[in-house]
Design a protein around this nucleic acid. Sequence first.
RNA 1: GUGGGUGUAGCUCAGCUGGUAGAGCGCUGCGUUGUGGUCGCAGAUGCCGCGGGUUCAAGUCCCGUCACUCACCCCA
Length: 433
Amino acid sequence: MANINAPKGVPDYVPPRSRDFLRVQEQLSSSARLSGYEYIELPVFESTELFERGVGTSTDVVQKEMYTFTDRGDRSITLRPEGTAGVMRAVIENRLDKGALPVKLWYRGPFFRAERPQLGRYRQLQQVGVEAVGSVDPIIDAEVIALADQAYRSLGLNDFHLDLTSLGCSQCRPAYRIKLQEFLGTCDLDQETKERADLNPLRVLDDKREIVSSQMIDAPLMIDSLCSQCQEHYDQVRDFLRIFGVQWNEAPRMVRGLDYYTRTTFEFVHPGLGAQSGIGGGGRYDGLMAELGGSELSGIGFGLGVDRTLLACEAEGLTPFRSRILDVFVIPVGDQSREPSVSLLVALRAAGIAADVCVDNRSIKSAMKAANVSNAPLVIIIGPDELSSSSVIVKNMTSGDQQSLPSEPGTLIPAVQETLRNLQAENRKEDQS
RNA sequence: GUGGGUGUAGCUCAGCUGGUAGAGCGCUGCGUUGUGGUCGCAGAUGCCGCGGGUUCAAGUCCCGUCACUCACCCCA
C-alpha cells in the first residue's frame, strides 16, 4: 500500500526541532504580551470576500495563492493567507472599534498560501502578529517596530536588519503613482511586468531581476513625494525609533505585497536563510477598517514568520535551545516496584515536576540508558531493596552522585524540588561564566 | 506558472569507466551479581523513489513518472 505523504509544501516539525519551533513561537509572542497586547483567537478560514476586499484583488496573494473552496452551504471560503484582514473583521464584528482606543491585539497560528515551496516558504506558514488599531500616533508605529525588534533580539538574533520606508497616503500617493507610471512607460519591460505596472506600479520597483532593477535606478521614489503630513509622520516615527533604540535602513524601494499599506512600512531581513530573507514585516493601513465596513480608523501591525525566524536562529547557531523537557526519570526495578513507581510519578507531576517513568520492564542497565537519553537531571530508582526500607534512590545524572531518601512523598517531593533548584542555580552560574 | 538539482539503511552520505550494496552516527545486546554517559565486542535494518527500455548482467546507462529540494515571480 502506498504511503500517504504530507501535502506539498507543508512542514512537519518533529522532535527535537519541534522544541525549537515552540520556543521561537513563544518568545515572539511573549514580546507582544510584554507590551500590553491582548490575545485574539481567530478562525483559520474566512469568507473569501474578506480577503478580496481587505488584501486587494490586485495582489498576487489574492489572485493566485489562496486556498478557496465552497462549503456545504455554497459559501465561498478561503483559508486565511494573512492575519490583518481577519483581525479587522473581528474588531468590527465585536465592536472593539467603538471602545477604548487604540485596540492592541496579538495573534498567532497558521496561514496558507498556495505558492511553489522553497526554503523558508511553505504553503502552511506560522506567524505571530500584532495589530494596534485606532491611532495614528507615530509612537505606536515605533512601538510596534521596536516590539518586533525586541522579539528577535530576545531569541539571541543579531544578524538581521530592518528596512523602513513610508508609502504615503491617499493624499500624496495617487500623484506619485501617476508620476511613476509615466516613468515606467519609458522602460523596456516584458508583458507581465507591464501589466503589473498598470495594476500596482510600486511593485515593479523592487523587482529583483537585473533586467528590471537596472532600469529602476532613476525611478522616482515615493519617499521624495510625501505630502507634508506624511513627511512629518515619518520623521517622528524615526525620532521615536531612536528613543526605542532601534536601528534601521532607509529602503525607499521596498514595497509590500498587500494593497492596504500606507505610510510607515517595514520589513525585517535576515541574510542567513536563502532567498526568502524576510523574517517579518508590516506597516500602517489607513483605509482598511473603513473598506471592511468599520470606523474610519488607522491601524498598524506586523507579522513575524515563525518558520523563517527558526531558520534564522539556526543560521546563527542559536539552536538547539537548551530547554529541559524532563526533571525526573523514574525507574522501577522488578514487578513489585511498578505500582509504587507510578504513584510516585503521579505525586511528582502533581507537584509540578516534569516526570516520566521507564516502561516495559527494562533491565536497570537499559533503563539507565533510557534515562540518559531522556536528559532528565535526576533519576529515581525504586527496587526491592528500597521497597523493604521505604526509601528511594535519587541519582544526580550530571555528577553521578546518588543518595537514599525516604519514599514518603511529604519529605521526598520537597527534597527533589530543592535539588532541582540547586541544579538550576548551578546551570545559571555556568551560563554566566 | 517557469528554470536547475537530488532521490541508496532511522539520519548524513559513499558506491570510479555496468557484475544483484557499504561507512559514520543512531539503535539493540554483551563486557556476570541492581546503575547511564567514555571505551571494547557482537548484532539488526535496505522492493538502491516508482514504471519501462538497453544488456548475459543496472544502484550504476537511456526514457518516462512521482516526490523532495533550490531558485525566479511573489512573500512571512
